[in-house]
Nucleic acid binder design. Structure first.
Lengths: 224, 224
DNA sequence: GGGTGAGTCGGTAAAATTACCGACTGCCCT
DNA sequence: AGGGCAGTCGGTAATTTTACCGACTCACCC
């Protein structure tokens, strides 16, 4: 009678521990209204492949090799305004909690998480909720508590592109205008090879693999 | 095995509507680990008698004759640091929400509330949680979010992209996200060749010769 | 029935981009 | 004196994109 979810909720997992990753994936598979569309062991892979997957929900571990899930969410949430992010971590750390929410996370669960809990969270967040472990919820609420009247801890706005050198910024500007490498090298008076090198370094820093991904990342953001 | 709550959770209710007041009280009575120790129709009565009752949990209506439940909570929460306050209101109002949390409330439910929901909330809050309707939770979380800096205002003189067919628009969206042709064809369920053809036609119509020029052309412009 | 547009598909080849390797020069800092 | 960083340059090879060719189906309209 009830034509269940016409399309299941697509979920991506970012988690470095292979065992946990597998467990989570299996938990999701026990429900037919949820579909795990990808698992990633690192922030790099996640940043690279999740944008093209466009999952409805991303389960994100905080502690990742090299980077943190928080940075990853900050980046992805800007590129994927229609995706929802649920942090899944074992560290009960207030700083990480608020950093995660500021970065764009909608939920925050503490590991270990049970199957029913995980599924409930995925469904909840996709329906507009913010799944959180109860103690976490209290902490979030307490942040508004007597004393701090204004809700916005600090409006981040659109974090500018950082970490790029002057020259790299310059190259990126030309890049985002669709110039050929040859044209850029002519304009800047340097060799074709130099332009390539700069661009390679830019891509590494921005965690993208092509010009268009870099440009997409820039959408609306100021160049520092 | 589990020696149920040695002492039930004491709950007080502040609610002006007699009917609702009675309903809430009855809901609480259906559980034996919860005990309704008092009901009050006004802020005055609540402020006068609740301090002596020292209930563990206070269910507080926001709209009260004369005063508001928010003021009432602000007062009571200072005098009763061991009591917990859960707002229970039918007005889904952000201002009231944040004012309530600032005043010291730990939970926020929207009426009408079902029995199981109410009992879960009472137990949750007494165990250190912060019961909230899911949409409310999201709103609280969003308050920390990447600054409510909404999408960049749409400059007037930005003519939308026109002349592209539905399918072409779709392809262009993926294109501007940096997906590979292969990824686009997978996502849309068409062949690699088809994607190429669409893209060629898009470039012709937009008078560009590369993906990045097309993306640059899109900067801030709506897809029609 | 013919024409048109949207959408689909294939092959080939050139052009552009990306990845990865290494190296050299200045400059600043300890 | 050494280390680190930004900037410069080169080669090679794989990958991706772009250009241009032709062709088929289907729906719609005159």
């Amino acid at each position: 009678m009830t034509p269940p979810p016409p399309s299941p909720i697509s979920v991506a997992i970012v988690e470095d521990d292979p065992r946990v990753r597998r467990d989570l994936c299996e938990m999701l598979h026990t429900a037919d209204d949820v579909s795990c569309v990808g698992t990633f062991p690192s922030a790099e892979e996640a940043l690279e492949k999740i944008p093209n997957l466009r999952p409805k929900v991303v389960l994100m571990d905080i502690h990742l090799p090299g980077s943190t899930g928080i940075e990853c969410v900050r980046d992805l949430s800007q590129r994927l305004p229609d995706s929802l992010f649920v942090m899944l971590t074992s560290s009960d750390d207030s700083e990480a909690l608020f950093a995660s929410l500021s970065a764009g996370a909608s939920g925050y669960l503490l590991k270990p998480v049970r199957t029913t809990e995980l599924l409930a969270a995925v469904r909840d967040v996709s329906l507009g909720g913010s799944p959180m472990t109860s103690h976490i919820a209290r902490r979030v609420v307490r942040a508004f508590g007597p004393a701090n009247s204004p809700p916005p801890p600090q409006p981040a706005g659109a974090p500018p592109v950082e970490g790029l050198s002057e020259r790299e910024m310059e190259i990126l500007t030309h890049l985002s205008q669709g110039s050929l490498y040859k044209e850029i090298s002519d304009q800047l008076g340097v060799s074709y090879a130099t332009v390539r090198t700069h661009i390679e370094r830019i891509y590494r820093k921005l965690h993208v693999r092509s010009r268009s991904q870099a440009v997409a990342l820039l959408q609306g953001r100021p160049l520092r």
